[in-house]
């Protein structure tokens, strides 16, 4: 062995292996997170060399004077609740169905997954066009079915724009939950299922007492990932409505971006980011602790 002593020390080798990932992650992911907290206590337009400390002023402004913030908060919460219920539920039903030995299940899986790999900004462009009040697909179909009364300005009506957008979001992400559930279903013990069927359990009972408990870990992963991806809904809102009409579809992530990068108020934008970050952490930290405990128990 001609290698130097340092090469042989496992600790040095570990540092060399972890080093590149750690450096880039700490600099470009962790530092901005610290910086956003610092910025939220400052007044800054993004250009001046001087940043002025203003204490809690940004938070005070957002919470008391910024009406858009409250709309964005309410929309983000509504959106997250919808996103945690519908795409995972439809995804689970599809996975259960497509786990059966059915004719054509492989191409069907591919069809349901296809929207996941389309750029969200392209999904926004597609659906914006389909929602067009004059030439869009939806209103054309309604006209040809003589349902003119149902015709709407899907993205221009403040009452429904958010939900129109959510339909496009669901179309895109159902396949993602489906694939995770399909993967989870491969881990369900077949002999348990058969034993239950022989004992006379019907489909619902087998699902309720055998399949669902076995999917517990998958379910937790899907729900957490759905929550996180819904909190960062950005591309689709930016591309479909830009937060309009009249800020009625504004969300926290987009509003933070607009405050900083378009209004050039980095302090207020960062304060919104910090609030969204805190919301995320209240969901993520319990999950991390739960998964760590689970791993500890398995060892």
């Amino acid at each position: 062995m001609l290698k130097s002593k340092a090469m042989q020390s496992p600790r040095t080798q570990a540092l060399m292996l972890i080093g590149p990932a750690f450096a880039v992650y700490a600099t470009f992911a962790i530092w901005p997170m610290i910086e956003v907290v610092i910025l939220s206590f400052q007044h800054w337009n993004g250009l001046d060399p001087q940043r002025e400390w203003v204490g809690l002023e940004n938070y005070r402004y957002i919470l008391t004077s910024d009406t858009v913030f409250w709309v964005a908060l309410r929309n983000t919460i509504n959106w997250t609740i919808l996103a945690v219920i519908f795409p995972p539920m439809i995804g689970l039903l599809l996975a259960l169905g497509l786990n059966e030995q059915l004719f054509g299940r492989v191409p069907m899986r591919a069809i349901y997954y296809l929207p996941v790999i389309i750029a969200p900004i392209a999904v926004a462009t597609m659906w914006r066009w389909m929602y067009d009040p004059f030439f869009g697909l939806f209103n054309q179909v309604l006209t040809s079915l003589s349902l003119q009364a149902w015709i709407k300005d899907w993205l221009g009506d403040r009452e429904i724009a958010l939900y129109s957008m959510f339909v496009a979001y669901t179309w895109q992400y159902v396949g993602f939950s489906m694939v995770l559930f399909l993967a989870g279903l491969q881990g369900v013990d077949r002999s348990l299922v058969e034993a239950a069927r022989i004992d006379g359990a019907n489909r619902w009972q087998v699902f309720r007492h055998v399949t669902l408990p076995a999917l517990r870990v998958t379910l937790a992963i899907v729900l957490v990932l759905s929550t996180i991806s819904s909190l960062k809904a950005f591309d689709i809102v930016y591309g479909m409505t830009g937060g309009g009409p009249a800020q009625s579809t504004q969300m926290l992530a987009l509003w933070a971006f607009m405050q900083s990068m378009q209004i050039f108020d980095f302090g207020r934008g960062s304060a919104i980011s910090v609030i969204l970050l805190l919301v995320t952490l209240t969901i993520v930290v319990p999950y991390l602790r739960w998964s760590q405990r689970d791993e500890g128990a398995a060892e």
Partner: peptide, 11 residues
């Protein structure tokens, strides 16, 4: 677990 969309300005 942290959405980077939150940190566009500091990035």
């Amino acid at each position: 677990m942290i959405p980077f969309q939150v940190m566009l300005a500091p990035i």
